[in-house]
Design a protein around this nucleic acid. Structure first.
Length: 383
RNA sequence: GCGCAGGUGGCGGAGCGGUCAAUCGCAUCAGACUGUAAAUCUGACGCCCUAGCGGCUACGGAGGUUCGAAUCCUCCCCUGCGCA
């Protein structure tokens, strides 16, 4: 049902290319996972997905549980719901422990140094059993058993252990405590799993501390998970340290997923260090915000200078939007008109862009040209 | 020609005697976004600068009243609607 096969390894780095087999088809790795939190890639229609070359989508346990509640028992399954026959993952809700809690309270991102909106509201209450999320008048409680139970009903091909994503502002002592909890929860997740046709990935945490990360990689890596996720917070530099500390300690033949990271340079660095799949909201969220990703980086198509611009979003791009002759000027005008079609077109392009980047990465590894490819790709970036 | 309603920053549109360089929206400019709380958010947006509860010029034009006017008065110019 679930299998990972490494096809080629880079000689000079830990990069590898392979194939993950799932009940819903294969995923060629390294692969980008497109985020579809509420069982839909925002702004896209199901029929848009094939054109974007998307192999893998990740939906979210917390959000779907919040939305479905009791109706989850009669849920048709994510593949049907999304009109997507490829591989699907569900995140466990562990990230929401951070994003709806500490992150929201303090206005921090999981990537250290990034300041986001802060409203001082912390909706979470964390105990050793699980996490209670305030949702208006009601409360939503998640723990390892409940998260796995929900994920089994959602029916993704790959599911994640319920963990606690800490903040870059949490100190060593807190991370140590949270890590012990995440480890205990990992075992509970394994014990709670009933379905055998879903691959449950364990998640490595430990903040930016080497001893915690290594401890986590050893511990989680020793458990019978068919794959692993690298989660948590770190700085731009620390991110690569964390991967270089942890990935060598994990069973090489099992796939590794980097949770929630995905700018061009991050993708290249992560792959170089041995990451097989990764997910990120950047292609989709930034598309809705008007940021168009290209080999040179991104630009904001909403800007006045693109009014009437007859060029495609990206030169020589073969995505369905660029190939159809849609222009920057048209898309700028759609953004100006608040037409949701703008976000859809930008999303198709961005998703295609990242999927295509991964395709090129896979090719370069097979051809033993990854280092060269990476260097060239980085040199093209303007910022 | 008469009557009525208006003329405010790039545009729309508040303000109707003081704390108004002027709410707000749009446009523009700059920035952010990394397991989606955000198809969202932040900042700038008359001119000048040593960037400050700083200086200057401003609310169609010209006068006037007032300690003080975008706000009141007079005349003029212009626009829209109605009647001739």
């Amino acid at each position: 049902m679930f299998n990972f096969k490494i096809i080629a390894k880079d000689k000079k780095s830990r990069a590898r290319t392979g194939v993950i087999e799932t009940p819903h088809g294969i995923v060629e790795t390294p692969a980008y996972t497109i985020v579809g939190t509420n069982a839909a890639v925002r702004t896209l229609h199901p029929e848009d997905l094939p054109g974007t070359k998307t192999q893998l989508i990740i939906a979210n346990t917390y959000h779907l549980w919040r939305e479905l509640g009791d109706r989850l028992d009669s849920f048709e399954g994510l593949h049907k719901k999304m009109g997507f026959n490829g591989a699907i993952m569900t995140d466990s809700g562990g990230f929401q422990v951070f994003s709806l809690g500490f992150a929201r309270e303090h206005g921090t991102s999981k990537v250290a140094g990034i300041v986001t909106g802060r409203d001082g509201i912390n909706l979470t209450k964390i105990t050793d059993d699980g996490v209670s999320f305030k949702d208006g008048e009601r409360e939503i409680f998640l723990n390892p058993e409940i998260s796995i139970g929900i994920q089994e009903k959602l029916g993704a091909d790959i599911i994640f252990a319920f963990d606690e994503c800490t903040s870059p502002l949490n100190d060593y002592a807190y991370n140590k405590l949270a890590l012990a909890r995440t480890h205990a929860w990992a075992k509970r997740c394994l014990a709670a799993q009933k379905r055998s046709d879903q691959a449950l990935y364990g998640i490595i945490q430990g903040g930016e501390w080497r001893d915690l990360r290594e401890e986590s990689a050893r511990f989680i890596g020793s458990l019978p998970f068919p794959g692993f996720g690298i989660g948590g917070s770190f700085g731009k530099e620390g991110m690569m340290d964390v991967l270089s500390w942890t990935l060598p300690l994990l069973p090489e033949e099992k796939p590794r997923h980097l949770l929630g990271i995905g700018r061009i340079e991050d993708v290249l660095n992560a792959v170089e260090l041995g990451v097989d799949t990764l997910d990120c909201v950047i292609p989709t969220r930034e598309a809705r915000h008007g940021s168009i990703w290209t080999a040179e980086g991104r630009y904001d198509v909403k800007k006045g200078r693109y009014a009437g611009d007859k060029k495609p979003l990206e030169k020589n791009c073969a995505c369905p939007v660029c190939a159809s002759g849609r222009t920057r000027g048209e898309i700028k005008a759609l953004f100006a008109a608040r037409d949701l079609e703008a976000g859809r077109l930008a999303t198709i392009h961005n998703v295609w862009f990242f999927n295509e980047l991964m395709r090129q990465i896979r090719e370069s590894i097979k051809e033993e040209k990854f280092a060269k490819f990476k260097k060239k790709a980085l040199s093209k970036l303007m910022d």
